[in-house]
Simulated assay, not measured.
Amino acid sequence: MTTTTLSIGELSERTGVPTSALRYYDELGLVRPSSRDSGRRRYAESAVKDVAVVLFLAEIGFSLAEIGTYLDGERTGRREMIERKLAELAERQHRIEVARTALEHGLKCPASEPMKCSRFWSIIDGRMRGLSLEESHGRVH
């Protein structure tokens, strides 16, 4: 019984990932071919799931380098990576909320043009003095 393998083109077609990205995944050790036939990559059927894992981890915020570490890691190391990523996402979400508040003010600005608004320039001044956007915006409002 022969084992069926996939060419890089077939793997690309099954996963929607361009062949150039699959070659890069191979370089990084994320998804390796099971063999080579006349120098051409041949992938096991399981590579479809391997690519899906890489895509999922990338979609939830892991870089390719982090994905490599995650895939190579042990259970405790993976848990720590997840905790760090959650903290990073919480910080990013907080910054987005602060930015949203500032932008919403820009739309409601009584000066009708944020660049002519004294509050806008007070916020900029606070940032130049080393305050965070949140601190600077909070002092003005």
Rank of each mutant, 00 (worst) to 15 (best):
H94G: 02
M128F: 10
E45H: 11
G130R: 04
V140M: 00
P110A: 10
T101N: 11
P18W: 12
R32G: 01
A99W: 11
S132P: 05
E104L: 09
E104Y: 01
M128Q: 09
T15H: 08
Y24S: 08
V31K: 05
Y25S: 01
E27Q: 14
V48K: 02
E10Q: 15
S118M: 01
V51L: 06
R14A: 15
R119N: 09
R23H: 08
V51E: 03
A111I: 02
S63V: 07
G29M: 06
R95G: 02
R95K: 12
A44P: 03
A52K: 04
W121F: 12
T4K: 15
I123W: 06
S46V: 09
R95Y: 03
S35F: 05
A21H: 10
P114Q: 03
I60H: 00
R75G: 07
V54W: 11
T15E: 07
S35N: 03
I82N: 05
L6F: 14
A44N: 03
T3R: 15
V48P: 03
E27W: 10
L28Q: 06
K49E: 14
A102P: 06
M115W: 10
A44Q: 05
I123R: 00
M115R: 12
S35K: 08
D26K: 04
L71V: 08
V51K: 01
D26I: 04
E80K: 13
D125V: 05
R42V: 01
P18M: 11
T101G: 10
E134Q: 01
I96F: 11
R139V: 03
G138F: 04
L89R: 12
L55F: 08
R32M: 12
T76L: 14
E10Y: 14
K116L: 09
L22A: 06
V98K: 00
L11F: 13
M81N: 00
E97T: 09
V17Y: 11
S132H: 08
Q93I: 07
P33I: 06
S12R: 13
R95F: 02
S20A: 15
R42N: 08
R14I: 12
E74V: 12
S35V: 04
R127H: 01
G130P: 00
D37V: 14
M1D: 15
V140I: 08
L86A: 07
E66N: 01
T69N: 12
V54Y: 07
V54N: 08
E135A: 06
R119M: 04
R36N: 06
T15W: 13
I60Y: 02
V48L: 00
R95L: 06
L107A: 07
R41H: 07
A47Q: 01
S132Q: 02
G73W: 13
E10D: 15
L86T: 01
R139L: 00
R32T: 08
T101A: 13
I124T: 04
S34D: 01
A21K: 14
